[in-house]
């Protein structure tokens, strides 16, 4: 029925269009045809100069309006030390490109209006201007040199971290379509693992003969981390490429079958502290008011690990909760978990 209706609407629209065109053609043929009718008339140039300017400014205003309207949806305060660095770089870069955007778009569309081909308009012959061109080559070069340098230093400090204390080693293990984590245990060294060793309860393929692995702690569904201690994540994947994305920590790394990749950061806010951040409270209140309308359970803020590389049908629902807590809370949680040796 619906399909029929849509087909009918489309067909009618096409017929209506055809009729409009017929009218247009007939009214044209009644007037005298001239060669220049093929080009926009002064009147059309006038109208579309104004319309073009209006459209450009409409978009410009939409860009500004949406920043105020939707800016609040953006990620809350970052919850890692590294995130603070990238956020600062982000805002500086945003300021630069925002400035260029807000200046160039109005100029472009103002010119459309200002130089629209109305009666009496003459173009000025102008081939090039070395001085102007030098200006808009040199200025972007200088600005980019600054951004590049700043970016490269930030990247290097994140990717080659130099922590004062020994980072906690945690493996994140991805498979279609769930996450597991393996904490390195008392010795803080992960035991060797390979998919070929997966057997029964040993779902991560940890080598039972590797002594480093016996104290490893494997968890699913929820990973706890202590606050203010660097964490060195090692990533593995069982089947296809996945990507471990932890947006609140501004952290992401692909999990690649056959390779171990790594990424480190230092969480600097506990889950409890995040729930007290005013911006987070506002966002959660808003989300909960929407959820209430939809008849869903209220939601409480939690850190989350998402899969961010297409990995199959349930890619959209491959997640794990991350709880950041104080050292004491973390240690008592750790005690409740079973080690790999105990699980054998």
């Amino acid at each position: 029925m619906m399909t029929l209706l849509i087909t009918a609407v489309v067909v009618l629209a096409i017929i209506a269009l055809a009729q409009v065109v017929r009218i247009f053609e007939i009214s044209n043929s009644m007037r005298e045809q001239k060669e220049e009718d093929n080009r926009p008339s002064h009147k059309e140039n006038d109208s579309y100069g104004k319309i073009g300017f209006a459209l450009g400014m409409l978009f410009w205003l939409f860009a500004i309006w949406s920043t105020f309207k939707w800016g609040k949806y953006l990620l809350p305060v970052s919850a890692s030390n590294e995130g603070l660095d990238t956020d600062q770089l982000m805002w500086i870069t945003m300021a630069v490109i925002g400035f260029v955007f807000l200046i160039t778009q109005p100029i472009l569309f103002y010119f459309v209006y200002r130089y629209r081909g109305i009666k009496g308009r003459k173009a000025t012959y102008m081939e090039h201007d070395n001085k102007l061109e030098a200006i808009w080559t040199v200025i972007p070069t200088i600005v980019l040199a600054i951004i590049i340098t700043y970016g490269i230093f930030t990247w290097s400090s994140i990717m080659n971290p130099d922590f004062e204390e020994e980072p906690l080693v945690v493996e994140l293990y991805a498979k279609q379509f769930s996450w597991q984590a393996r904490l390195a245990g008392d010795d803080n060294i992960l035991g060797y693992a390979n998919v070929r060793l997966i057997e029964g309860a040993n779902t991560l393929g940890v080598d039972p003969n590797d002594l480093n692995g016996l104290d490893d702690i494997i968890v699913s569904g929820e990973l706890h981390l202590p606050v203010n201690r660097p964490v060195l994540f090692k990533f593995r994947a069982q089947d296809v490429i996945h990507s471990a994305y932890m947006p609140h920590f501004r952290a992401q790394m692909n999990c690649v079958p056959g390779t171990v990749t790594q990424f480190a950061f230092t969480p600097n806010k506990t889950t409890a502290e995040m729930r007290q951040v005013p911006k987070v409270i506002n966002q959660i209140d808003h989300i909960n008011s929407l959820r209430e309308e939809m008849g869903e359970e209220p939601y409480e803020f939690d850190f989350v690990l998402l899969c961010n590389k297409i990995c199959g049908s349930a890619h959209y629902n491959m997640q794990m909760k991350i709880v950041v807590e104080t050292e004491e809370e973390f240690n008592s949680w750790l005690k409740e978990q079973t080690t790999f040796a105990e699980s054998l």
Partner: peptide, 8 residues
Amino acid sequence: LWKGNLQL
């Protein structure tokens, strides 16, 4: 576009 005679 600057100082042109824009045929839109």
